[in-house]
Design a protein around this nucleic acid. Structure first.
Lengths: 223, 223
DNA sequence: ATTCATAATTATGGATGCAGTATCATGCAA
DNA sequence: TTGCATGATACTGCATCCATAATTATGAAT
């Protein structure tokens, strides 16, 4: 499965991978707007490459759900409907819940200290009301938890789901009061981890994600 | 997201999709053995196509986890380790559990009748000790439940996970007594669905999947 | 003026060609 | 005989080219 991790990569990533990465960034930045058509020719000129690696990159992005390939009609940036979001979030909640559950089972005191340190950072960013840095620390927190859970397949699914969610520019953390609420929830999750209570940790993480979805719903559709 | 479903497909699938489908079949049949190298040139000759659509198909399969692309070294059929299987099954259990839970919430009496009919088929195949047809009916059962749950994203993840699991040729249903046990578990799931008890249905489906993993573990590594 | 048919243009999908690198074999030296 | 170096072979990755289908533009007829 993860044969790519077993053979350490010293070689430069293939061109189509680099292109895929750059396209992801542009999609998340909404520089390529959701629903928008992707002009292959323009991109090949811009990047100074041929269409072959670009098309391969688009296949990869399509598999990730970031773009949609319409046969004979081109490639379009995925446009998420409200229904789509309502489908992805519950799944995300279940997956993240599983991560927290498993992490609670396996967490060592050293790992807990590391998590607590990240949480400290969260507290500070929240105090400073810095949504960007809070978001970044939040990512680190969830990433660390994934490592502790030790299930790379599960982590991979979550990463993909998170990519899809990132297609919507809306950011619930910018909602007034959401930072504090998110922080409180994190604190409770951390507590469950300290208690090494898998069921509780899983439940709280699950609810935390759904709480994020609810916050998102409270935002206007386009900022 | 599912813009492909909104525009009904009257057009023939692209060549790379057809190729991907044929390759999947050959991988599942272990005609292309796990760990084995995929000879692009041989396949292009065999299929009478060029390398372009073939390579695009391989990108898709790589995203599904069926093959691994090693830069400058070619493409290899994914070789699952026991650890990989232990990672995928718990995730599968959680996802299928979520499906059952959601289905229990939404199921109508008509839908229940349809499920019950499929279950009847399962009973008969089990009585006839026909593992192949049991397997097929089993697929229909889970597919039907996915439709009732009504979360296409969730369904998609499960489909992908199932593909990965199919990489191992081992089939727990062939294990002596597993057919009966699986049937019993299905019966209990059905009961929970009739009771419209989401938590119970989810729990039982979850355990059902883990039970399948345990059965698999009891099999010899390679038949 | 509007609508439909037809032609021109453009973009997608697939085939082919070529450069660079990894693998394998052969040979030389220790 | 074993280890390493060097050259030959072959395959991957990217670029270019071509055919076909879709879209748009143009013009005619109602």
């Amino acid at each position: 499965m993860n044969a790519s991790t077993s053979s350490q990569i010293l070689t430069a990533p293939a061109l189509y991978e680099q292109v895929a990465e750059r396209l992801r960034a542009r999609i998340f930045a909404h520089e390529l707007p959701p629903g928008g058509w992707i002009d292959e020719q323009a991109l090949t000129q811009e990047y100074g490459i041929s269409r072959t690696p670009l098309r391969e990159a688009l296949k990869v992005l399509a598999a990730e759900g970031l773009v949609v390939l319409k046969p004979r009609r081109g490639c379009y940036v995925t446009l998420l409907s409200e229904k789509d979001i309502d489908e992805v979030f519950p799944v995300m909640a279940v997956l993240e819940g599983k991560v927290a559950e498993e992490a609670a089972r396996r967490i060592t005191s050293a790992e807990f200290s590391r998590l607590a340190a990240i949480h400290e950072d969260l507290e500070q960013q929240a105090a400073a009301n810095n949504a960007d840095r809070f978001f970044e620390a939040n990512q680190r927190f969830h990433k660390a938890l994934q490592e502790i859970a030790g299930n790379s397949y599960l982590a991979h699914l979550i990463d993909d789901a998170r990519k899809v969610i990132k297609l919507t520019r809306r950011d619930s953390l910018r909602l007034d009061g959401r930072l504090i609420q998110s922080l409180t929830e994190h604190r409770e999750i951390l507590e469950a981890l300290q208690l090494k209570d898998p069921a509780l940790a899983g439940q709280r993480m699950h609810d935390h994600l759904l709480s994020g979805r609810a916050a998102l719903a409270r935002l206007a559709v386009s900022p």
